[in-house]
């Protein structure tokens, strides 16, 4: 059973048609890589899944529940969107950590705010906060940053910041974790540590969608690859199919440019 089904998504900005009839599905535990040149619509697709953009047409279904339907305004209400977007986590290209909070607080803040809405929050405040703290610490050790817990974001490297951002996205236990070019803002020597963390998540069967320019990484870690160009999904399949035996001319051209670079 598919955990995610995306059906007939369309998106335009003014007169630019950015996404054209996007369809795909994702199984639980699968890792999907989205590749393609700049401006092909990869990031917009990811932003649509995370409700940062509203598709003009189409539906998004998670666990058989329609969480977005362009024809049904009731799925687009602010309060509804707030709950439903938590099916997804998003790791940004530029990390977007909160600079005024420590690394640990970055990871726990959202969970602490959500906990305030629990009916038993007042009675069990201490226990709830302690649980969130413990979970935050566990996540930080998972990304190898226990020793940086009390540092502020500007005191750690870009690679470390991105690992904090991954821990922060995991803190709310999303069904599907999305990455928007997670290593593009990093110095080359720092990409490895981030990719290793993502790979570790894949080994633990985390369902992920990764927009990336790291072809070797995509080949290595993805179960399925989507190649996008000019707002359409040109080709999708296993890494073997897409990278070794691309069927479409546009895919071949795109990969050739990468192999020569």
């Amino acid at each position: 059973m598919a955990i995610l089904e995306v059906k007939a998504i369309e998106k335009s900005f003014d007169n630019t048609h950015v996404l054209k009839d996007i369809n795909f599905s994702l199984e639980k535990g699968e890792v999907m890589a989205i590749i393609g040149s700049s401006g092909s619509g990869k990031t917009t697709l990811l932003r649509c899944l995370n409700f940062l953009e509203r598709p003009d047409k189409g539906t998004i279904i998670v666990n058989n529940e329609v969480i977005f339907d362009a024809m049904d305004p009731s799925t687009q209400k602010e309060s509804e969107v707030r709950k439903k977007r938590l099916h997804f986590g998003l790791v940004f290209q530029n990390f977007n950590l909160f600079p005024q909070y420590t690394v640990l607080k970055n990871v726990t803040l959202a969970a602490e705010l959500l906990a305030k809405e629990r009916s038993d929050y007042k009675q069990n405040k201490k226990v709830i906060i302690e649980e969130i703290q413990e979970r935050g610490k566990t996540l930080l050790s998972q990304v190898g940053l226990s020793d940086k817990m009390n540092f502020y974001p500007h005191m750690i490297s870009g690679g470390q910041q991105q690992r904090v951002a991954i821990a922060r996205a995991l803190a709310l236990e999303p069904d599907i974790l999305c990455f928007d070019e997670p290593t593009s803002a990093l110095d080359p020597e720092l990409t490895g540590e981030v990719l290793r963390v993502i790979k570790g998540l894949a080994e633990r069967n985390t369902t992920m969608i990764i927009v990336t320019h790291e072809m070797d990484f995509a080949r290595d870690v993805a179960d399925r690859v989507i190649f996008m160009d000019d707002g359409v999904i040109v080709e999708q399949g296993s890494p073997q199919e897409v990278f070794a035996n691309p069927k479409e001319e546009r895919t071949k051209q795109f990969l050739a440019r990468y192999n020569n670079a």
Partner: peptide, 17 residues
């Protein structure tokens, strides 16, 4: 930066939060 608002949004925070 817009990324600060977006980071809050994807973490399920309300506008006032």
């Amino acid at each position: 930066p817009a990324g600060q608002y977006e980071a809050g949004q994807v973490l399920g925070m309300t506008k006032s939060q």
